[in-house]
Design a protein around this nucleic acid. Sequence first.
DNA 1: CACCGATCTAAACGACGTCAAGATAATCTT
DNA 2: AAGATTATCTTGACGTCGTTTAGATCGGTG
Lengths: 210, 210
Amino acid sequence: MSEMTQTASSEARPYHHGDLSRALVEAARRILETEGPAALSLRAVAREAGVSPAAPYHHFKDKGELLDAVAHEGWAALDAALGEARAKAVDSKERMTSLGVAYVCFARDNPALYRVMYDCSRDKDALPEQMKEEGAYCQVRNTIDERSGGTATPLDLELATIAAWCAGHGLAEMISFKQFDPLKEALGGEEAFLRAVFEHLGMFAKLDQA
Amino acid sequence: MSEMTQTASSEARPYHHGDLSRALVEAARRILETEGPAALSLRAVAREAGVSPAAPYHHFKDKGELLDAVAHEGWAALDAALGEARAKAVDSKERMTSLGVAYVCFARDNPALYRVMYDCSRDKDALPEQMKEEGAYCQVRNTIDERSGGTATPLDLELATIAAWCAGHGLAEMISFKQFDPLKEALGGEEAFLRAVFEHLGMFAKLDQA
DNA sequence: CACCGATCTAAACGACGTCAAGATAATCTT
DNA sequence: AAGATTATCTTGACGTCGTTTAGATCGGTG
């Protein structure tokens, strides 16, 4: 089996790595966290994993495919984060806001990973299949459905899910702009700011009045 | 003065271009529209403008500064688009939705430019100054203020503006995913889809009930 | 007219993504 | 167990990129 996850500084590695695919993805995530998306070159990933620049091509068709793998892990992590938030909130009314806050916090805490996730999606003009089957998107839809007491029509449910997703993503992209720092302070912290914006969105006005 | 906007194929250009800054920005926009953001290299821009790869450095500190100039024009174009939409809508209730639709349509019709606009903002962790003074952001705030009859507190007004902006941006980024194509058809077109989502956002529930 | 600063070119550097050839090791066949 | 096959990794190369340095060219000022 594979030894430790190994960086370039380790002792001599056997000629065959053992599990280079995995090591490359982990190296990529390490670079993303420490140096940001701009530093994420294929060569840098290979360097970090301690292999030659051409080695990754035996495991991924090209750079894009490696990033796809990274993005896949990102979506899985987001799924998990939303799942936790959903489980914690007891009140159905509050659960939706918690979900939104959790989404934005994930993006804030993993900005580079979040960027890669959407960059990959854009290249394929589609959100990952992963989301369709019990992924993050479904969690949002289920939470909304639950909140509406199951009375929402499929169309309304889908529209509400899209609306919520867009609001979350939009806020996730805005939250890092320092423009809003004074406002965050005035409201007593970032999470309070998030909750205030979500409240203003009143994303479920239509469902509530039904 | 400057001759025609000139591509690489034109007849011999004088050694000094005349207005290379402008020509470079225009060349960049041309490349963005025809070949997309991935093809937008400094060298390609210089090629398109018919100058050497080093020429741009006498007008812009680096590639980022050229993109800043492109982004600046993008924000101006967005301002104009929102201004038009705002002027057309007579009903105060409808005006807000029209503004949102216009925003998303701008992003859909100028996807590469829209991307450059936000990429530049991210590099500076701030939306452009441009927006602060009668720019797009102010137009949204003014429209919201107008709608609330001027009764909204400054805090509520700011939060509502942020909420609306996030919703618009989020929807703008999602609209291109083909995931939602069936839904668009079901609703009878893309604009109908946009309006439906905006309606579901009920972005002004809080202001309306006041 | 001579000069000077602004503008452009030519040539080079290192880093990048990618590919073709060859080396090495694990696995399969007999 | 020995040889053949296949998967994996390295070396070296190609073209492109952003950027810098040195030199060529030109417009305007004395």
